[in-house]
Design a protein around this nucleic acid. Sequence first.
DNA 1: TCCGACCTCGCTATTTCTGGGGAGTTAATA
DNA 2: TATTAACTCCCCAGAAATAGCGAGGTCGGA
Lengths: 239, 239
Amino acid sequence: MVANTTVEEVLAELEQADTLESIQDAILKLREYFEVENMVYHWVDSAGEQYGYGTYPLEWATRYQEQNYIRIDPVIAGCYKRFHPVDWKKLDWSGKAVRAFQAEAVEYGIGTQGYSIPIRGPNGQFALFTVNHTCDDAEWEKFTEDNRRELILIAHYFNQKALEFEPNRAPEQSQSLSPREIDAMTLLAIGYSRAQVAETLSISEHTLRVYIESARFKLGASNTTHAVARALSRGLIVV
Amino acid sequence: MVANTTVEEVLAELEQADTLESIQDAILKLREYFEVENMVYHWVDSAGEQYGYGTYPLEWATRYQEQNYIRIDPVIAGCYKRFHPVDWKKLDWSGKAVRAFQAEAVEYGIGTQGYSIPIRGPNGQFALFTVNHTCDDAEWEKFTEDNRRELILIAHYFNQKALEFEPNRAPEQSQSLSPREIDAMTLLAIGYSRAQVAETLSISEHTLRVYIESARFKLGASNTTHAVARALSRGLIVV
DNA sequence: TCCGACCTCGCTATTTCTGGGGAGTTAATA
DNA sequence: TATTAACTCCCCAGAAATAGCGAGGTCGGA
């Protein structure tokens, strides 16, 4: 453990960080402090765009992007379904493609142990903060138990910084939907057809169409399915 | 500040808590420790149901529920749009109904200063952890700056407990989709039409239709929109 | 070895959705 | 008071999705 460097200090530094370099620097310091191989912050926004920074080898990051591994990565899939920090061992690594992915990750130098903290934002934004290492299970369990609190905090801080540097992703002032639009979107999301929705809401199908279209417009969606998907992932409706 | 009680200790206690009483007890201890008037954890689930615990006067909680104040409460509205902890002063308190609500809250004994931490879950779940007090702005700012980290952690812990006590909200196991089905659902969710999806995947539109239909069948959905909505809220696809 | 699950392609007909117009009322807010 | 936003209704034509029949190939596991 590096002397004279505490999490508190690095967090304080991170709080002041105003360049990408200083963030990367903070990551490196934290990696040293925790003595882990990798530490990564990864962001996926509601438009499917990704970005992140950390200590994964560049080759792996490139490969991951190229192969669109986000589609099969069980860390993404697993964390997306969960509230709380999750140990990679708890994830579902079955399936041929997944095992191949895992083997490849190891080849690229990714440790076998991992701990990822999911964070969600208002418009379906989703971020992951991951620490990654190679060691035996017992050691890793001790590590995650000892450091869970700090890691959660660090995840928050990185997330805050990520928003500062990507302001366009945060305020995406998705104008809220009107009550009727929410009704319409919600009923569509649970499988009603237009006719059923109109009947349920006791309005004409034409009127309903106006709502769907205005919702589509507000959400910047190209069709009903898209609009419902966006409303869902932005948390404007719930099913 | 109460001697011999640290946040660490209360968190450790909270971690072991297995009854609602012990959680309520932890809240009271934390309130003493932080020397604030109120401390509340509040949950809104995907069906619009609410529940929570804390130190707000029962009369206010009842009134709030009865009047459905969740609709106009700027704390809810504001936090719902934000990633990070927010000081109540930063919220939008304009509007007649909102000011009336605020005045009434003060009458019921709610402090004028507040700090709320939003937390989100996988299926549109949304929780708020709030501390509330009466003091001047400078004092409150110092308080929130000094204790932000602890409060974030406490929010996480309460949230974890909330999930333990409401296991039905945990992620459900559902039938997984095949890779091609996932591709299809994902592209539909980001707004592609059938023709565009087919072209993107380099398959005939007919083949695509087979995927959509089999996905629909697996998901028990009545149409494409429904299928995409289900795939999204089950975390089978990520947009 | 066989079964099931996955991937790929074709046809026709019907239903549903989308996109282009326009118009009037109420309620709240500035 | 004036303006804005939300809610409600109507027509039409073309585009897209759904429903029903099919067929054949590959690959891994029982």
